Simulated assay, not measured.
Amino acid sequence: MQRVSPTSTIWRTIVSKARKNVFFINDPFAARSFSAVPVVAAAKKLHQPEIPSDFQKWGSVGFCRTSKFASGFNPLQPKPLDSIVDVHRLKDRYPEDIASVWDDYHIGRGHIGATMKAKLYHLLEHRASECRYFVIPLWRGSGYTTMFVQVQTPHMIFTGLEDYKARGTQAAPYFTLTFYTEFAESKDLVLIRGDVVFTSKLTDPEAKWLLETAQSFYLNDARYKLVERFNRQTHDFEFKDVLQVLDMPIL
């Protein structure tokens, strides 16, 4: 478990490091989720576009639900929305029905399913373009583990702060989110899919809490000021302010 640093030096170092070592590149596979597939199967798909090198860093640690680093998997395999649900059949359904189908699909499947209004997604997208990084404490019993968050819509990645400090872009993601915008214009609805990468490090309930909490920091005006401070006035950022907002004790 971690304690609050008495100075802001650590945050300046982390933000500076993050800006130099971005998890993502400009993603040509927008609005997609990812899964790992065996190398043998991938060999049959050589005609598909090459996956950018930055994604291979994540593929090398196995982008799948497992309790340890995976081996024998190829770089990340893009997973379009129509491979998860029948997009054509949903086009004529009401937004409430689509949200219900999406939620039901993810029940008991080891993933997190959620939805949000398109207007809120666009606000998150705008704010994340200006303030990409943040830190969120995850309470566990008698203390907390700090998660490092990076947003580059339509993706959001969570990893342990200590892992990121030690490994940079080679740090394994604990939890990933993908925002699907196929119904944003026609239904005012954005679908969200979360994947817990390492179940030994993060439970599904914890992942759901992180999803909701991360959204609150980008969508709530008062909380977003802390995100701005972390990215723009790092020397003024105090981690204890985040703890207080989340009603967590300062250890």
Rank of each mutant, 00 (worst) to 15 (best):
A171G: 02
R167I: 02
Y180V: 04
K165W: 08
A118Q: 08
A128I: 01
F198M: 07
V196A: 10
R140D: 05
T159H: 08
Q152L: 06
P173W: 03
K165N: 05
V151R: 07
A128F: 03
G168R: 02
H122C: 10
Y164I: 02
F198P: 03
E130L: 11
Y121E: 02
P173A: 10
E130T: 08
M147A: 12
E182T: 13
S129W: 00
G160V: 07
E185Y: 11
K187N: 10
E125C: 14
F134R: 02
D195Q: 12
M156I: 12
K117Q: 14
H155K: 11
F158T: 03
Y144K: 09
Y180H: 15
V149W: 05
F198S: 08
T153S: 14
F134H: 04
D195P: 03
Y121T: 02
A171N: 03
T145F: 03
F148R: 02
F183L: 12
K187I: 01
Y174I: 02
G113P: 04
V151C: 13
V135R: 00
W139G: 01
T178L: 04
L138W: 06
V196K: 04
V135W: 06
L189S: 01
R167T: 07
H155Y: 14
T178H: 13
D195R: 03
H126R: 08
T181R: 14
D188F: 01
A171P: 06
T146C: 10
I157P: 00
R193C: 06
P137F: 01
F148M: 04
A172M: 06
F198Y: 08
A118R: 04
V151Y: 02
V149M: 05
D163R: 03
I157H: 01
R167C: 12
Y174L: 14
P173G: 09
A118H: 07
K187F: 02
Q152W: 04
M116W: 04
T145C: 12
T145M: 08
F183S: 12
F198V: 03
T145H: 09
R193Y: 06
T169R: 11
L138A: 01
F179M: 07
M147W: 01
